[in-house]
Design a binder for these strands. Structure first.
Lengths: 349, 349
DNA sequence: CTGAAAGCGCTAACAG
DNA sequence: CTGTTAGCGCTTTCAG
């Protein structure tokens, strides 16, 4: 029987460590460490030997040990209000994608739109601890800042640009969304533009502001009777759109263009209009919001405002990376992402 | 100037450690550790004191250190083929949710349906290392097993029950999906049931098998002319449904029930039928698959097969937890999840 | 250019 | 019941 005092103890298949490579090559583990971290004070020859052996043994550094020593865990947290909404899903997806080529991993979780859960998730993630946190919050920003920005973990807020924040952030230009939609309809010749607006949230209010701005810019007067507010309606978006269309069909002044708060609302609206004999887009043009794949390619391809969720995710990830590189700098930077119009048949005149 | 040799060095706001609590309370950090891990050999009084101070200082254990010592990282990896598909999204969401109450965190990533990316993500996550991996793979299972199950990290496969695997797994009963849909139509009196089938994948083939089984069970003959195979059609699901309906409308034998491979296909089918003057569900009943919220509540509420993605996610998470508890046991366990029927207007006769 | 020593925060094993 | 010792795998510091 052979006794090898250097033999690894512990779990059955322990992975290869720096020391294994070192003894293999008659070097100290220090040298290995240096090579692996790209220090320059190593001869080209030893460097090559080390790299060779590292590849052979498929050595992976033990990140726990690395973290314990350096304080960095090579992980980034992402918390979104909901993973079932395409918008946030797309953001999360793009953060993950953007970080795939780096050595960072992503802790993803959802606050389920509950401030309480959000708080829980934040402290859960900070306790881990993560190196940076990307957060699309559902809380008042002031409360939030105290809670999260107090620590030393860089925070990147993803928000609607509602508040001026003292934190790094990626803003979505909500107002521009409404402006873009309305001005598109103006450009194709609409004179009586309706708006099926969203719930009474900061974000929906901003979009509505943008809508009014666009009308003003075009010298059109704002018609309150063409604003459909489905507040309190607990239906599904499609049904809300359908109900909105019914209301508009009964209206004295018939709209020749409709801005809808979501794509599904738009589809519901269109379906109902079409059933009532209205020609879309000839009589009435319809534009949605979200540019969701499933919804925009139904019976009548829907023009929609793309919220640029993918860009938001990418920017957030890049911002996180930047903050982690130049960790010394405590400079706060914020990025703004603009929505874009995707024209389709529902407004093709 | 005050010199305190015990003052913490390093990053500006270092968090509180076990030692801090120990010195505060004139105890050794060992005792703190014991209390925190629920060891019984500590007096009730000291235990209370420790817990008190832990709360006061909001002490969080340093997980890197813990991991280095114990080999467990308190993190679980989840890799799905796609985060934009509701089915996988729902699985991921439920894993995260299920694990929220535990001390585990979730590394979520997507393989984007690319075996290469999947491999990358697996090794990325294993390198971290995670304590367990929940994987909905896009690869051949044999290749996979060698790759991932070889290590010591427990693997939980989420799959279609295609292969008999030597790994822990959560299966979806694909066949049952087709069977359930068809037999529902049989039960409401359909005699000429069409099938708008999915692509030529293992999963879609199984569903189709189930469909045929149900017909056989009901003593109905299988009609190849009522099977619409849209292989190669690169359209969107809605358009595929619409095209399928057109084909069926031109068919000699008109179906009185249609099983569709997805909800969106079903909606496309329905819309087209309705436009052609067919009464749904009276003349033709339609059933979809996926029970996706957005799609099932359009003009005509759609009966659909719920794939139980939430249950799949929950079970996978629970299985992972179980494996991590009784880590000694290398027993392989697998769970099967059944789909359920959700009846709505499109088959209400 | 290479390496020895010390220690990150925690826990397993054993003494008192 | 409480504490001491040792060391997980890595990096920082400094000496050859």
């Amino acid at each position: 029987m052979r006794f090898d005092l250097n033999e690894r103890q512990g779990s059955p298949v322990m992975s290869v460590r720096m020391k294994d490579i070192a003894t293999d090559l008659n070097l100290s583990k220090m040298t290995i460490s240096k090579v692996l971290r790209g220090q320059t004070d190593v001869s080209a020859k030893t460097k090559a030997r080390v790299l060779q052996r590292v590849k052979e043994l498929n050595y992976k550094p033990n990140i726990s040990a690395q973290s314990l020593r350096t304080g960095r865990t090579l992980s980034i947290g992402v918390i979104v209000p909901s993973l079932s909404e395409p918008f946030f899903m797309e953001i999360a997806r793009n953060v993950v994608q953007q970080l795939r080529s780096t050595s960072y991993s992503v802790f993803l979780s959802s606050s389920e739109r509950e401030p309480e859960i959000e708080r829980l998730e934040i402290s859960h993630q900070l306790a881990w601890p993560i190196d940076a946190l990307i957060l699309a919050s559902v809380q008042s920003s002031t409360e939030l800042q105290e809670f999260a920005a107090s620590g030393q973990t860089p925070l990147i807020l993803v928000d609607s640009g509602t508040a001026v924040l003292k934190s790094n952030s990626v803003h979505l230009r909500e107002q521009e969304i409404g402006r873009l939609a309305a001005s598109h309809l103006v450009h194709i010749g609409c004179r009586r533009i309706a708006n099926v607006r969203g719930p009474r949230t900061a974000s929906a209010d901003l979009r509505f502001d943008g809508f009014r701005t666009a009308l003003a810019e075009a010298g059109q007067r704002f018609r309150p009777d063409l604003v459909i507010d489905l507040e309190g309606a607990d239906d599904h978006d499609y049904q809300r759109g359908a109900r909105a269309a019914e209301r508009l069909l009964r209206n004295k002044v018939k709209p020749d263009g409709i801005v809808c708060h979501t794509d599904l609302v738009a589809v519901g609206t269109m379906d109902t209009l079409i059933c009532a004999g209205v020609q879309v887009p000839r009589d009435t043009a319809v534009i949605g919001c979200g540019n969701t794949v499933q919804t925009c390619h139904m019976r009548l391809p829907l023009t929609s405002i793309d919220l640029s969720a993918s860009k938001v995710g990418q920017r957030a990830a890049k911002l996180a990376l930047t903050l982690l590189e130049q960790e010394g700098t405590r400079r706060v930077s914020s990025v703004t992402v603009s929505p874009t119009l995707v024209g389709r048949q529902s407004t093709a005149r």
